[in-house]
Design a protein around this nucleic acid. Sequence first.
RNA 1: GGAGGGGUUCCCGAGUGGCCAAAGGGGCCGGACUGUAAAUCCGUUGUCGACGACUUCGAAGGUUCGAAUCCUUCCCCCUCCA
Length: 416
Amino acid sequence: MKNLFETLKARGYVYQLTHEDEIRGLLNSDEPFTFYLGIDPTADSLHIGHFFALMVFRYLQDAGNKGILLVGGATGMVGDPSGKTDMRQMMSKEQVAHNVAEVTEIAKRFINTSGENPAIIVNNAEWMDGYDYISFLRDVGIHFNVNTMLQAEAYAKRIDEGGLTFMEMGYMLMQAYDFVHLNRKYGCTLQIGGSDQWGNIVAGVNLGRKLDFAAGTARQTFFGMTNPLLMTADGKKMGKTEKGALWVAKDRTSTYDFYQYFYNVGDGDVVTLLKLFTKLPLDEIDELVFADIVAAKKRMAFEITKLVHGEEEAQSAAEAAKAMFSGGVSEDAPLAELELKQLCEDSSSGEVPVASLLAASGMASSKSEARRLISQGGVQINGEKIESPDSVVGVAAGVELVARVGKKKYMRILIK
RNA sequence: GGAGGGGUUCCCGAGUGGCCAAAGGGGCCGGACUGUAAAUCCGUUGUCGACGACUUCGAAGGUUCGAAUCCUUCCCCCUCCA
C-alpha cells in the first residue's frame, strides 16, 4: 500500500477527480495501472504548463505504473476550443507533422521511454485518420448531447464571444474517443491533464461507459484527474513572459531567461513552485522558505532549470546571473554580433550612436525606443551610464561591449 | 436573405472637419525605494537624419486649403428577424 495519492495532493498536483475514492485506491494500490496524458502539437515546443502535467506523469510512472503519452497528430488538425476566446488558427498538415516530431522529442526528455518500465508514445492520427466520417458519427457522435456540450464551462467563452464552429465541437468527440481507444488497446484506465481539459476528460469517461453499456459488455474502468492551472499568487497565469509563453526549448526561451523568470517570481509563489517542480520534501521546503525567502527562491529557480535543462545548464545560468548582478560580465550572457560596416561608414573604426547600437543588437525595438531608454537613465555601456540620447561610442572591429538596459537585461555586443 | 450597430495606436475605450500622433484606463518599459520579489511613487509608451520631418485610426478611391471624423465601393464582426 502506497500513499501516492496523498503525496500528489499535498504537493498541489490534484485539482479535479471524476471518482475520488476509486482514484485514491488506484494510485495507492500496489497493482500497477495504465494512464495517459494527451498533448496537442500546437507549437513545436512545450511550455511550462505542459511541464506541470508531465510532472504528474513522472510521479505516476516512477511509482511503477504504465504511462502513455499521446501526441495529438489528429486532434491538432482540429484545435481544442476549451477555454479559448478565439478560434485557433488552423495549422497546415505539414506544420502539425513538424510539431508532432518536435514535441515528441522534447517530451522524451521528461518521461522515461526506456528501461524497466518505459512509457509509450502514441499519435492519435494512428487510429483517427482511417476512421470515416459517417462511421464516427454513428459510433461516437450518437453518444453526445449537444445541449450538454454547450453547457460545458470550456465553451462558455467561445459562445459568449459569438462563434463556436462545428469543427471545434467535434474536438471533444475525438479526445473522448482517444481515451476509449487507449482503454481497449492498452487497458488504460486513467486520463490526466490540465484543468482546461476537464470537459474533454469527462467526455471520455462518459463515452467509455456508454459504449460499454450499448455493447452489453462488462463495464471498464474510466477515471479522470486534472491538475490545477498554474497561477501566480496574484492571480495571473504563470509562465507568461513579455515574449509570450515560457518555453522548454532553448532556442525559444534561453536557459538564462528561463532561470531569470523563476528567480523573479513573487515571494508567494516560491512554495508552490518548490512543491510542484522539485522533489524536495515538504517539511524541508517550509523550513527553507521560512529561513530565507531569497535563498529559497534561488534554490527553486536552480532546481527547476536543472530539471528542464540539466544540471550543467542550470549551473551556468545561475553563475551568469550572479556575475551580472554583481556588476561583472559573464561568458554566458547573450551575445549579439554586429557588422561594423552596417553601423558606420568608416570601415575600420568610428563612432556610433549608442541608440543605433541598441537597436541593431535587439536590446531596443527601435532607435526611438533606445533614445527613450537612454533619456530615462536606463542604459549603460561597459558599466557607464549613458547620459544623452545623442551619445556616441567608439567602436572598432573586434571590440566587445557590454550593454545593459534596465536592471536585468544584459547583452554582449561583438563588433565584427 | 432582410434590418440595424460597429471596426481607432499592444488591449479596453474616447474622439463625428483644423486645437489629433489621437483623452482615459490596463498592460509593457524606464527611474526611485528594495532582495534581480511584492506594494508604492514618478516618467515614458508610432517612426526617423529628432525642438523638426514622415507614416498611422478595417481596405481602396473621392470631396476639401485641411479628414480618424464627410461621400463611394469593398472586406470583416456583432445584434435582431428569416
